[in-house]
Design a binder for these strands. Structure first.
Length: 477
RNA sequence: CGGGGCGUAGCGCAGCCCGGUUAGCGCGCCUGCUUCGGGAGCAGGAGGUCGGAGGUUCAAAUCCUCUCGCCCCGACCA
């Protein structure tokens, strides 16, 4: 804990790794590529789950749970799905001391087992729509892993819905994309761009994939959530049909959508600085930490009891507050530690403050210090947290805008991408060949075709062929 | 899979090239005193089969062979 962090400007990946470990979000596991999510990190995840779960339920979804193990044959039923996921499957071949007749794969995502099940659940248009979400762990044997951003096993939610029409499925796809956008911006304080994925980048088995894309502190992009319109691909692969009102048999239309513990990585990299994490107040495990300050035993008695009283009032005001009354640590040490852990607001309570009936607040987001009357603090707390949220969001948005460029020539594209990086709005001829060529030349990929962008005639920055709109290129995680 | 690095106390490391007393250092931990408004000081103390196996040698953390694991950088991916 006492080690100093590597500065972001010196080595960003190293900073990331150190801050995740030192702030107590996660630890390495004995298994390659896996991590142990520690209580502080898991509480953050629980807070994210709670809000997302509420949003899903408000839009008519219910939770269910499907098995971890999937018969291997299921994975082979949808052609693109097989191709996309085969290389990263973990397979169980032995159990109960015997070799299994059919191996089981550990789910990398649950479309197949869910659509196998939906076949039994759906007969009529009256059974639709079917709006189910599950909170689960999944496993993908990636070649290279990074804490939270890409681990072999990760936690996520996956929604799987079934609809009677293509229009309904498309509406659902966009509805959930919008929920992800709202969650990212209103809770994580991370501004995101919503858009459509290119053919190359879309989900294996989808008709179309939409995503929210965020810009990290090192000016690289992070895909923070995806929503897929699966069309009738899985319904056909698993023979899921229904009778419509006219008595005709049709294949069901599907969507799936998910966000994962990767979002924790997004929070770390969107907001963190050289002193550590900066957690968005609406998700922070600890929103305010109260540090009593004293020299003598009498002062300790005075400030600690004042702190206890304050903490009680703050809890009643709905604040997630922590009292740091550890006697063996000095205040300066505690300040540094809570800053590393990204607590939005620190409340310092010393003899002078108690005498003045005030509290000294220190804001993590901008280091501002402010004295507030003790009696007013509980009533003021939510507003202060909201203010912090806005500052965080505004700063992240400003950063993104400062690192977003419209580029019109291949030279400019390469230069900007190299230094400083960021989002590049550029014309693209719409072909996978060009996309691949650009990736090979620069390591940049098309993050998305933004939804809220106007059409504009131009020529492809790489091939010079005609283009109808700009797309966003960036180096990505 | 290619490239690089690392396994020595809870954590971070030195020692290894050039073998040789009881294997060190910092942080943390325990005890005591003084401290406490930006990462405290002093004194005392506990804590190790040096990743594993085999070999060379009078003697191996150190040399040789094999092996296991993890991390970082790239290619693949949420």
């Amino acid at each position: 804990m006492a080690e100093k962090l590597t500065k972001q400007s010196v080595d960003y990946p190293r900073w990331y790794q150190e801050v995740v470990l030192q702030a107590g979000l996660a630890d390495y596991a004995p298994v390659k590529g896996c991590m142990i999510i520690k209580p502080y990190g898991y509480t953050l995840w629980e807070n994210m789950q709670r809000e997302l779960d509420r949003m899903f339920k408000e839009t008519g979804h219910v939770n269910a749970y499907f098995p971890l193990l999937i018969p291997e044959s299921f994975m082979k039923k949808e052609a693109e799905h097989v191709e996309g996921f085969s290389p990263e499957l973990a397979v169980v071949t032995h159990a109960g001391g015997k070799q299994l007749e059919e191996p089981y794969v550990i789910r990398p995502t649950s479309e197949t087992i869910i659509w196998d099940t939906y076949r039994k659940w759906i007969q009529s248009y009256r059974d639709l729509p079917l709006l189910i979400n599950q909170w689960a762990n999944v496993m993908r044997w990636e070649m290279r892993t990074r804490l939270f951003l890409r681990t072999t096993e990760f936690l996520w939610q996956e929604g799987h819905t079934a609809h009677a029409t293509a229009e309904e499925a498309q509406d659902e796809t966009l509805r959930m994309l919008e929920i992800y956008r709202r969650f990212a911006e209103d809770y994580m304080a991370v501004p995101v761009i919503t858009g459509l994925k290119s053919e190359r980048e879309k989900f294996a088995g989808a008709v179309s994939t939409y995503s929210i894309e965020a810009l990290m502190g090192d000016r690289k992009a992070l895909q923070a959530g995806t929503s897929h319109n699966l069309g009738q691909n899985f319904a056909k692969a698993f023979d899921v049909t229904f009778l419509n009102a006219e008595g005709e048999r049709e294949h069901v239309w599907a969507t799936s959508w998910g966000v994962s513990t990767r979002l924790i990585g997004a929070i770390v990299m969107a907001h963190g600085d050289d002193d550590g994490l900066i957690l968005p107040p609406r998700l922070a495990p600890i929103q305010m930490v109260v540090v009593p300050i004293y020299r003598s035993d009498e002062e300790q008695e005075t400030t600690v009891s004042a702190a206890r009283a304050l903490v009680e009032q703050l809890i009643r005001a709905g604040v997630r507050v922590h009292l740091d009354d550890r006697d063996q640590l000095r205040p300066g040490w505690k300040y540094a530690e809570w800053e590393l852990k990204g607590v939005p607001i620190r409340v310092e309570l010393g003899p002078r403050d108690v005498a003045n009936a005030s509290a000294r607040l220190a804001f993590r987001v901008d280091r501002e210090k402010r004295d507030v009357p003790l009696a007013e603090l509980p009533a003021l707390a939510q507003e202060l947290l909201d203010e912090t949220h806005r500052k965080l969001f505004d700063r992240a948005l400003k950063f993104r805008e400062e690192n977003t460029f419209r580029v019109d020539s291949w030279e400019e594209f390469q230069e900007r991408l190299d230094e400083p990086g960021g989002f590049l709005y550029a014309h693209w001829d719409g072909t996978s060949e060009t996309e691949e060529a650009i990736q090979n030349a620069t390591r940049a990929t098309i993050r998305c075709i933004p939804l809220d962008d106007d059409l504009e005639d131009g020529v492809c920055v790489y091939s010079g062929k005609p283009s109808r709109r700009r797309v966003i290129f960036a180096k990505a995680y």
